[in-house]
Amino acid sequence: MDTTNLLEINDLAVSVEGKEILQGINLTIKSGETNVIFGPNGSGKTTLMMAIMGFPRYRVNRGRIFFNGKDITSASVDERARLGIGIAFQRPPVVKGVKTAEMVQACLKARNRSEDVEQLAKKADMTRFLSRDINVGFSGGETKRSELLQLLAQNPQLVLLDEPESGVDLENIALIGSLINELLQKGCPIHQRSRGGLIISHTGHILDYVNAAKGYVLYDGKIISCGSSPLDILDNIKKKGYQECASCPIK
C-alpha cells in the first residue's frame, strides 16, 4: 500500500444480492487528482462508487479499500462520510419532511464545520430550495445542485460524483462544472491540492469543465483499460465502442 494515495483499491470483488458485479478492481487516486470512469450501462460503475462509500447492499467479497492509508473496507457509510468521503448521487431518494437546509446542516455538523448555510446555498443557486423537502419535485439540474451543495457543506477530501451531468440542461452545466472545480480545489496549484475526485461519466461532457488526470474503462465488472488521457479514451470509445477499448494499451 502506498501511503501517498488518497484512495487505493486492491483486487476488489463486489456482489449485489448474491450476484457478483465487480471483479479484481485495482484503482488508485492521489491527492489533487481526479479520475474518470467510463463504461456502458450495467458495467458496474455505480456499484464501484457505492462500494467505496460503503453501502451495505454492495457487499465486498474480496479485496481492500484504503482511504488515506486507513483500511476502511469494513467501515460504515457514516464513518466514511465523517472521515472525508462525499458522494453526489445520480438519483438520490426523496425524503419527505426533511428540509434541504437540515441536510446541509447535518453535513456541516458531521464534519465539524460552521459555514453559513445561506451563503453555501447561494453558491449553488439553491437558496429558494432550503425550506423545501429534500429532492421532492426537484428537476434534474436542481437535484445535481442540491447534491453538490451538500458536498460543499461536507467539504470531503474524496469526492465521488455519479454522472454529474446527466439530466442537466446547458444553462446549468457550467454552474455544475464550477461547483465541482471548487470541490476539487481547481483554484489551487496542483501540488497544494489535497482533494481527489472520482467521476462517473457516460457522455464525457463534464470533461469540458473538469480536468481529469486518469481515465478508466469499466466493462462487465472489470477495468479493461486505464490511461492518463481521459479525452483520448473517450475518443477511442466513440470510435470503436467500449468493448474494443480492451485492446487499448494500458498506460
Binding site: S76, V95, Q150
Partner: peptide, 8 residues
Amino acid sequence: EYLMARGL
C-alpha cells in the same frame, strides 16, 4: 443510508 452518507 442517504442521510448516513452525509455523516449522520
